[in-house]
Amino acid sequence: MLSLNRVSKQYGNFMALEEIDLEFTQGVYALLAPNGAGKTTLIKMLATLIFPTKGEILWNGDDIIALDAAYRDLIGYLPQDFGYYRNHTPREFLRYMAAVKCLKREQVAQRIDELLDLVGLSDVRDKKMRKFSGGMIQRVGIAQAMLNNPRILILDEPTAGLDPKERVRFRNLISSLSKDRIVILSTHIVSDIETIASSVILIKDRRLFAQDSPGSICQQLNGKIFETDAVDDLDIPHLLLTERQENGQTITRFASEQGSGEARSVTPNLEDVFLYVYRDEER
């Protein structure tokens, strides 16, 4: 089990994260927060790239910093700004990553072929990566993260910059990888995690705001989310969430403590929760 005990991170006078307590066992943990909320800071602490100012991060009771290489052997990490060698082929790049992950030489070729197959890059395995699309590069990224068959897969905004088709493909891939490991995924795109996350972690004002299953998180807004086609007629305090076009009408989704007139109550989704929780943090 991976756990964070009262973890804080401070940069000079700026407190990025404050007293975060979390536990990860198995499944997809979605770290959902707006940009600048501290997701990447938390992810980088889990990847041992930065260190907590206070508190500790433990793997089965041992400090991950003290575990050093033994801990890093358990993780696979895909950073937000995934760098790669432009003049290498995916296969060459993965061979190098296999070397720094200390994979046994006899396993490397087979493992690389398996992963390139899994991420759908088999046909371009020997092509230079300089002409790859963003989605293809992200798939190389997930392949390098999976090389050592990690117990903990850490993905920082893995779908940023991908087109909708690639995002769906990526989502399915992550879902298939989460069967027997911890997948920690940070994102501010709600649709990325709505269907695959077993637990959603919300960070607000530098602190842990909520950690629960998507269903339970959404339940917190039960009876508070409404839709109407006459938003101008609303005479109650409300928070506008989203709008969509339907049968030539603009349907507005809003949050309110009470219903009003012809507004109908709807089932809250994660996007409603996100917009509701971070309503003060528009940037």
């Binding site: 290489a69 760098g83 993260a145």
Partner: peptide, 20 residues
Amino acid sequence: YEQMRGTESIVYASRVGRQV
């Protein structure tokens, strides 16, 4: 080399880590 190519974080998060 790794810093210039943005691969520092994945290499440092690997088993070899900063000992590379």
